[in-house]
Computed example of a mutant assay.
Amino acid sequence: MSVLYESNEGIALITIDRADKRNAINPAVAQGLTDAWVRFAESDDLVAILTGAGNDAFCVGADLKDLPGEVWQALPNFAVPCDKPIIAAVSGYVIGAGASMALYSDIVIASESASFIYPEAKVGMFQGIMGGFPKKMPFGVGLEWTTTGEPMSAQRAYEIGFVNKLTPVGEQVNEAMALARKIAVNAPLVVRTMKRLALETLPRSPMDEFYPQKRRLEAIAQSQDAQEGVNAFREKRPPRFQGR
């Protein structure tokens, strides 16, 4: 399993389990994360923690030797809408799509070794997702970070509000778990409504609108009804749609 899902006391711990590859996202990780977000959204779990195995890297982005394709589907709060809190517990390298996962998590707990890097401007590739950075950091600071591709230290990320709390290396998951427990004992309807209203108040980038719609359209294109429509046309008969 490239992505682990553990549930305990209303808290889901979701772990990218590729420490030997610095938790780079390959097709298995992308699908595993997508499945995890669907499972969390539909489960009785109240809070989720997203982390990466080990302390050297939370996630270094896409695996260039085994490209994952649609990375956006792996992001929290993106392809799978969710009004339950999601905490990212990060350490070491937080690069590319790894930085995007931190951006789209609701709360970020980082070890003092965390280094946030968004290198797309240096490599000439950009899917638009990080265009939503103003929801988590001041415009000028975020624009400098994304357009230079230079690392942002954990301390700097904390100072600008991107990171909620810093911990010693190795303590980031424990700290996230302590915070998750505080949230999980509170009234679920209130917690979920608070997050939903807050998300509706935040600015949304064009990509925030585009990718969720793309997912819905792709689901239609891959549905049984779509295949039934094609078959019915070929067989010159009325289609028998079943809504799936």
Results as ranks from 00 to 15, higher is better:
residue 156 R to Q: 15
residue 47 V to H: 05
residue 157 A to N: 07
residue 107 I to T: 14
residue 223 S to T: 07
residue 91 S to H: 10
residue 223 S to M: 00
residue 84 K to P: 01
residue 10 G to D: 06
residue 87 I to R: 08
residue 135 K to Y: 09
residue 168 P to D: 11
residue 100 S to H: 05
residue 191 V to D: 03
residue 159 E to R: 04
residue 235 E to F: 03
residue 185 V to P: 02
residue 125 M to S: 06
residue 134 P to N: 05
residue 1 M to S: 15
residue 238 P to D: 09
residue 96 G to D: 12
residue 237 R to Q: 06
residue 99 A to S: 10
residue 185 V to S: 11
residue 89 A to Q: 02
residue 171 E to I: 00
residue 228 E to C: 08
residue 184 A to L: 02
residue 159 E to I: 06
residue 225 D to I: 06
residue 204 R to W: 09
residue 157 A to I: 11
residue 189 L to F: 07
residue 77 N to C: 07
residue 21 K to Y: 12
residue 72 W to Y: 10
residue 209 E to I: 14
residue 75 L to M: 12
residue 165 K to C: 11
residue 139 F to N: 05
residue 97 A to M: 05
residue 47 V to L: 08
residue 231 N to M: 13
residue 43 S to E: 07
residue 123 V to F: 15
residue 189 L to R: 11
residue 69 G to V: 05
residue 213 Q to G: 05
residue 160 I to P: 00
residue 195 K to N: 09
residue 129 I to Q: 08
residue 142 G to K: 03
residue 163 V to N: 08
residue 116 F to M: 00
residue 84 K to E: 03
residue 78 F to M: 14
residue 235 E to H: 11
residue 239 P to C: 13
residue 36 A to N: 01
residue 202 L to A: 15
residue 32 G to S: 07
residue 114 A to V: 04
residue 46 L to E: 12
residue 175 E to D: 08
residue 191 V to R: 14
residue 180 A to S: 04
residue 190 V to Y: 07
residue 151 P to Y: 11
residue 140 G to Y: 08
residue 150 E to H: 10
residue 110 A to D: 04
residue 144 E to Q: 15
residue 76 P to N: 11
residue 202 L to S: 06
residue 104 Y to C: 08
residue 202 L to H: 04
residue 108 V to S: 01
residue 135 K to I: 15
residue 85 P to C: 08
residue 94 V to G: 01
residue 195 K to F: 12
residue 31 Q to M: 14
residue 196 R to W: 06
residue 239 P to L: 10
residue 127 Q to S: 15
residue 111 S to Y: 01
residue 214 K to F: 10
residue 119 P to W: 07
residue 69 G to W: 00
residue 226 A to C: 09
residue 231 N to S: 15
residue 134 P to G: 04
residue 119 P to R: 11
residue 51 T to P: 01
residue 150 E to W: 02
residue 215 R to M: 14
residue 76 P to H: 07
residue 66 D to V: 03
residue 179 L to W: 04
residue 98 G to C: 09
residue 163 V to R: 01
residue 200 E to S: 15
residue 243 G to Q: 09
residue 44 D to M: 10
residue 202 L to R: 13
residue 207 M to S: 11
residue 127 Q to K: 01
residue 19 A to I: 13
residue 62 A to F: 05
residue 204 R to M: 13
residue 74 A to R: 08
residue 216 R to F: 03
residue 74 A to K: 10
residue 153 S to W: 06
residue 192 R to M: 15
residue 155 Q to I: 14
residue 142 G to D: 03
residue 48 A to T: 03
residue 235 E to I: 00
residue 17 D to Y: 01
residue 149 G to W: 12
residue 48 A to C: 05
residue 10 G to I: 08
residue 127 Q to T: 13
residue 9 E to M: 11
residue 227 Q to G: 13
residue 187 A to S: 14
residue 56 D to M: 10
residue 236 K to M: 13
residue 48 A to M: 01
residue 25 I to N: 06
residue 201 T to G: 02
residue 128 G to E: 02
residue 241 F to A: 09
